[in-house]
Design a protein around this nucleic acid. Structure first.
Length: 678
DNA sequence: GTACATCTAAACACAC
DNA sequence: CGTGTGTTTAGATGTA
């Protein structure tokens, strides 16, 4: 339909939009690249490199946009001129209007539109090439139109002569006359258009030679804008920028093809989204141009001047002082097309940054909102915490935990530090081992072990996670959990496998370890029974182990001991502290909350050890007993003290495992543990 | 660096 | 003799 007159092109796009695409194709194809490359000066070459890329994509928008407008105006003009639509003409006999539609192609570019195109001050060489090619096509088509017009005239005259002789076809004659009139109109329009086009090009310095010349020298930047246009542009730039700032509008970028179409076109409405336009960002991001307008208000803090260098994008000219900078600014960055183009690019960069900032702000807000919600959420479930625990966390975590309890009544350096940090509490929530035990709870924390096991029973049963306790502690726990506080070796085995999935593997290893521990530690006493030998726990011996751990601040311990009711205030202080800090780590909601009990028992454990070594001459204080019990000592080796009993009312730990029905422990003796688990 | 605790592995003894 | 139980030793590792 629309014949492309591009050199060596035989393509015939069907519509104006197709034509534009086609033309754009020319600008991108090697064939088009064969066109004479524009000659750049050294300066303009740099500008070309810095300015061309961002607008290469822009051209697609502008071309399509213009094409749409052209399509509309083409239809309007056709209605005005009484011409048939291209579609209809397409199917009409060639005799009717064979090239009328083809002639429409250049003419549909109205002067305003052409001006609009031309007023894209910043044009890539491809764009300019396309425009000039269009111009060439226009002129070529004009010549063709003129030729066709002559032919039509001749034909018409011929037909008129024939009609005069034959008196036929008055209708066709009339039609041809109408078409002729339309052609004349189109021709006039085209001539006007061409004139304007050329004028515009010349005005912008793009066209320095006579039209019709095959190779036109191109310049990367449109130049020679008239002052009114520039002023309008400045208005656009500044108003658009301020509008962006004040309204917080998130337009990604300005489509530069539309920002300065006309003075009546508001910048706001001419904003279109163009997310690709500013992705190239070759120009460094600096201050908006509009700030330069107000530099006089802040003479020595000009945003375009810093460290003796002009900060105009791409300039970096050295200016010794502010005055020279001003001179430089006025001379080198005057109100010309180049500055305008750079300003436009800068505008785009700024807008893109603003968009990015808005997005990041939104993201930040979402993150904060999310975290805020999270922080107010209930405490984490204890079981999942177990899954993330590790061996290395065990002791080091417990040692670092005082920081998480800053309001504990004891000082970090005090011997009670491990007490207040509540290693067992840490244990219950955050310390669990996976893999070989290299770090584990000290045995002095064995009481909280029971709590931990009770809390995380299901977890240990199902997850192959090595419990963070020593074999000795586990053996003791197993024995203490038994109703008679005594177990056979096999019962101990069963307890291990029943309580911990981890011990369902490598039986040879850990069983050997159990035996080794039973034999090695004095705290485990073998008692001959009717049924055979059973193992019991000598709590005194058990508490004796590694007493040096309790070494520390004796005075504090003594003070603690001197207080008969120290456990209660201490526990209260802990409660207050935890409540104050609302430490979710210490809460195990799903399992009941033995935290306080853990802490209390841990404290007692710690104090037991402390008293044992710092106040051993205190006859009434039976080692291995809780301070409470120390007041009422009950030393019966054959009936090892159950530490959890010592917790007394302070303990929130459920004692379900000590219920009489737990004597079915023996049921596990000869049964596979896995079945027991089920 | 040392002592201690713990774990692992292994050897050994003994009873069933 | 094999297995289970118990003891002991040795080495490695971690902690105080």
């Amino acid at each position: 339909m629309f014949q492309c007159v591009f050199s060596s092109s035989v393509l015939q796009p069907h519509s104006t939009s197709c034509l534009f695409k086609h033309l754009f194709h020319h600008s991108a194809t090697p064939a088009s690249q064969k066109q004479p490359e524009p000659i750049y000066s050294k300066k303009t070459e740099i500008q070309r490199q810095t300015v061309r890329a961002p607008f290469a994509k822009l051209f697609i928008f502008s071309a399509l946009q213009v094409a749409r407008q052209l399509l509309l105006q083409q239809q309007q003009q056709q209605q005005v001129s009484g011409l048939k639509s291209p579609k209809r003409n397409d199917k009409q006999p060639a005799l009717q209007v064979p090239v009328s539609v083809a002639m429409m192609t250049p003419q549909v570019i109205t002067p305003q539109q052409m001006q609009q195109i031309l007023q894209q001050q910043v044009l890539s060489p491809q764009q300019l090439q396309v425009l000039l090619q269009q111009q060439q096509a226009l002129m070529l088509q004009q010549q063709q139109l003129q030729e066709f017009y002559k032919k039509q005239q001749e034909q018409l005259q011929l037909q008129l002569l024939q009609q005069q002789h034959a008196g036929k076809q008055p209708k066709e004659q009339q039609q041809v006359a109408t078409q002729q009139l339309a052609f004349q109109q189109q021709l006039l329009q085209m001539q006007q258009l061409q004139q304007q086009h050329l004028l515009s090009l010349q005005r912008q310095g793009l066209l320095t030679i006579q039209p019709g010349q095959p190779a036109l020298p191109l310049q990367p930047l449109a130049q020679g804008m008239i002052p009114t246009e520039l002023q309008q542009l400045w208005k656009e730039v500044t108003s658009a920028h301020t509008a962006e700032e004040t309204t917080g509008n998130n337009h990604s970028s300005l489509d530069l093809t539309t920002t300065c179409v006309s003075s009546s076109a508001p910048s706001k409405t001419s904003l279109i989204m163009n997310p690709h336009a500013s992705t190239n960002g070759q120009l460094s991001v600096h201050t908006p141009k509009r700030e330069s307008l107000s530099h006089e208000e802040h003479p020595h803090s000009h945003p375009l001047y810093g460290h003796g260098v002009c900060k105009w994008p791409g300039c970096e000219a050295v200016c010794e002082d502010f005055q020279s900078f001003l001179k430089h600014l006025n001379s080198e960055h005057a109100l010309d097309d180049r500055s305008t183009a750079q300003c436009r690019v800068q505008m785009q960069v700024v807008q893109q940054l603003e968009l990015q900032l808005a997005k990041d702000k939104e993201r930040l807000q979402a993150m904060m909102t999310h975290l805020h919600v999270k922080s107010t959420e209930p405490k984490a479930a204890p079981q999942p915490l177990n899954l993330v625990s590790s061996v290395t966390l065990s002791k080091s975590a417990s040692e670092a935990s005082p920081q998480s309890l800053p309001h504990t009544p004891t000082t970090p350096t005090a011997p009670l530090t491990p007490v207040t940090q509540g290693p067992s509490v840490i244990t219950t929530t955050s310390m669990h081992t996976v893999g070989p035990i290299r770090r584990r709870y000290s045995d002095k924390y064995n009481v909280p072990i029971s709590s931990d096991i009770a809390q995380n029973q299901e977890f240990y049963k199902n997850a192959e996670v090595r419990p963070p306790f020593t074999y000795a502690s586990l053996i003791r726990q197993a024995i203490l959990e038994s109703p008679e506080k005594q177990l056979t070796l096999n019962e101990i085995y069963n307890w291990f496998t029943r309580m911990f999935a981890y011990f369902r593997r490598n039986a040879a290893t850990w069983k050997n370890a159990v035996r080794h521990n039973l034999s090695l530690h004095k705290c485990f006493v073998r008692v001959e029974n009717v049924k055979g030998a059973v193992w019991t726990v000598d709590e005194v011996e058990f508490q004796k182990r590694r007493p040096q751990k309790i070494s520390g601040n004796p005075s504090l311990i003594k003070n603690m001991q001197s207080s008969h009711a120290y456990c209660t205030p201490l526990n209260a202080a802990l409660q207050a502290s935890m409540a104050e800090n609302s430490i979710p780590l210490y809460t195990t909601a799903s399992m009941g909350n033995p935290t306080l009990g853990n802490l209390a028992s841990a404290i007692r454990e710690e104090l037991n050890g402390a008293m044992e070594h710092t106040n051993s001459n205190e006859s009434d204080s039976s080692p291995g007993r809780s301070p409470m019990q120390a007041v009422h000592p009950v030393h019966v080796k054959e009936e090892p003290l159950d530490p959890e009993e010592a917790e007394g009312p302070l303990s929130l730990v459920t004692t379900a495992n000590h219920s009489p029905d737990f004597d079915h422990d023996r049921d596990y003796e000869d049964e596979p543990v896995n079945e027991d688990m089920e």
